[in-house]
């Protein structure tokens, strides 16, 4: 019961800071709002027994990716007058809200049909790092995991080839 209450509180904060990301006028404030969103999402993951995902969420998203965002914002060197303005947002917001509404209807209908299929028994160590490690290295996910290494190599090569001064 206590966990359920926490879950909803965390989710609410995550959603509110998510809205903050799009509505704040100062880019730094937007970015910090995103950090808050990431942290509370990570808290939700912990409550869902997805420890590994929670740690990665903090390390990669709230850590590395956010630093990158803030670096870029700093490098752009925005002056006070350059804050984002919301001109001509009327029509776009109608399209956005329409899409979001459609998605919400779809999601709620889908949620109404849950639970669909749950495994008969969930292992006790489900979601722990040991469990994920076994699934990645001994279980069925070895090949996709190794293919991701090729994917990362390609991405690094691409970044260098496209950004290097002379090739």
């Amino acid at each position: 019961m206590f966990e359920a209450v926490l879950f909803y509180v965390f989710s609410l904060v995550a959603m509110m800071s998510g809205v903050g990301v799009v509505t704040m006028r100062n880019p730094i404030a937007s970015a910090l709002s995103l950090v808050v969103c990431f942290f509370f999402l990570a808290a939700d993951y912990v409550l869902l027994d997805a420890h590994f995902v929670a740690v990665i969420q903090i390390l990669v998203y709230a850590g590395a990716i956010m630093v990158l965002f803030i670096f870029v914002i700093m490098l752009l060197n925005l002056r006070h007058g350059d804050q984002l303005t919301f001109e001509d947002i009327g029509r776009r917001s109608i399209v956005g809200m329409g899409t979001a509404g459609l998605l919400a209807v779809g999601l709620f209908t889908a949620l109404g049909q849950l639970p669909v299929v749950l495994p008969a028994q969930i292992p006790a160590d489900y979601g722990t790092i040991a469990y994920i490690g076994k699934a990645l290295f001994e279980g069925p996910y070895l090949l996709p995991f190794e293919t991701v290494s090729a994917l990362l190599t390609v991405a690094v090569v691409g970044a260098v080839v496209l950004a290097k001064k002379e090739i």
Partner: peptide
């Protein structure tokens, strides 16, 4: 034969193609 594998290999293919497209910098 698994949607995860479909996705990962699709990304390997696509990201290579994105880079190759922009090669004439």
């Amino acid at each position: 034969n698994d949607l995860i594998m479909v996705f990962v290999s699709l990304e390997v293919m696509s990201i290579s193609m994105y880079i190759l497209c922009a090669l004439k910098r």
